[in-house]
């Protein structure tokens, strides 16, 4: 009854719970950070924190932001890895063929966007559910890569044939800050602005929440869903470019390594946000959380194979936290 709920004065415990709910992700991050700082002496060093950002954060953050756009319209993109791979393949192959790095990079972005556009046709055009459509794309993409590479042979750039611009993209730094990290930061800011301040972002979130109302409001919902998936492909392609520029090789289907963590980070961010909506800051904090746990467990001397146990426990903890806070709030 409206009478009762509106008459409630916020009491002190409620206010505290409110703060916890609003900042659950930050609190979780601080807790994990504190635990590892105490547990191992090497965690809280500048070198290690840099390593977290470069090795455990950049690529996954970009892939997870791509995922967040698909999730914002109520979908999911199981083919983020495919877009990463296609971008990487196009980029490396064209550089190898002697094309200018800029041309090759644009072709890579185009390849990722094309994967997104293929998903968009399946989902918005034909009406297949995002889960199945992108799963299909994932499988088809895998086959195509094997066909293109004679059964999965990597495409190497010979050490002598790596152009300076290519190396700069993967290993360069501006003012001491690694280029990939700068690119990730730009994407984080741009994606945040698009999702919170652009009309497209508002409509996308509304579609994710209640698509029929969007349609009944006279908005072309399908077109917005299509754009979200193309955007996901395009953003994932950036991760593909950085990945191949860092390791100077294209390895077929290597992008799929990011898929599960991207899903994890996105849903950690969504679950622990106050309104339960997909959001970029939440996704980024989710990526950090996963990265810190992976890095911290490694430093504590645990066997590498325990890392995924850590990730799994982290996800359970997040679920438990959201369940407790939501019930009380």
């Amino acid at each position: 009854m409206t009478l009762q709920t509106s008459a409630i004065e916020p009491s002190v415990p409620r206010a505290i719970i409110g703060v916890v709910v609003d900042n659950a992700l930050v609190l979780a991050l601080v807790t994990v950070f504190a635990i590892f700082s105490f547990a191992t002496p090497t965690f809280l060093t500048i070198a290690n924190l840099q390593s977290i950002l470069v090795n455990n954060f950049t690529l996954l953050a970009i892939a997870a932001i791509a995922m967040t756009f698909a999730v914002s319209v109520g979908g999911i993109d199981l083919s983020v890895g495919t877009a990463i791979d296609f971008a990487s393949f196009a980029f490396v192959s064209l550089v190898l063929a002697g094309q200018p790095v800029v041309v090759a990079a644009l072709a890579g972005l185009g390849a990722g966007a094309a994967v997104g556009a293929f998903n968009a046709v399946l989902i918005s055009g034909i009406g297949i559910s995002p889960f199945l459509a992108t799963l299909g794309t994932l499988f088809i993409g895998r086959s195509i890569q094997q066909l293109l590479t004679n059964g999965g042979n990597p495409v190497y750039l010979p050490p002598s044939g790596v152009p300076e611009a290519f190396r700069f993209l993967g290993r360069g730094a501006i003012g001491g800050i690694p280029v990939p990290l700068i690119i990730a930061a730009i994407i984080i800011v741009a994606a945040t602005v698009i999702l919170t301040r652009a009309r497209f972002g508002r409509v996308a979130l509304a579609i994710g929440i209640q698509p029929s109302v969007v349609r009944y409001s006279g908005i072309a919902a399908r077109a917005h869903v299509a754009v979200a998936f193309i955007l996901a492909g395009l953003i994932a392609a950036v991760a593909g470019l950085i990945l191949s520029a860092t390791v100077t090789v294209y390895i077929p289907s290597s992008g799929s390594a990011f898929l599960l963590n991207a899903i994890g980070a996105t849903f950690i961010g969504t679950t622990l946000s106050r309104l339960g909506r997909p959001n970029i800051p939440g996704t980024v904090l989710g990526v950090l959380l996963l990265g810190i746990v992976a890095n911290g467990l490694l430093l504590t001397g645990l066997n590498f194979y325990w890392q995924q146990v850590g990730t799994g426990l982290l996800i359970f903890a997040v679920l438990a936290l959201s369940f407790i806070t939501r019930r009380k709030a």
């Binding site: 602005v193 301040r197 652009a198 009309r199 497209f200 508002r202 409509v203 979130l205 509304a206 929440i209 209640q210 029929s212 109302v213 969007v214 009944y216 409001s217 006279g218 908005i219 309104l275 339960g276």
Partner: peptide, 28 residues
């Protein structure tokens, strides 16, 4: 089901079909 989005705010529901009026260069 079709009239209001229950998990959008009052504001977001009210302006859903008139968002163009509150948009400058694509931004709200």
């Amino acid at each position: 089901g079709n009239g209001v989005a229950l998990d959008l705010s009052v504001t977001e529901n009210i302006t859903l079909s008139s968002l163009k009026r509150f948009t400058r260069l694509g931004f709200l």
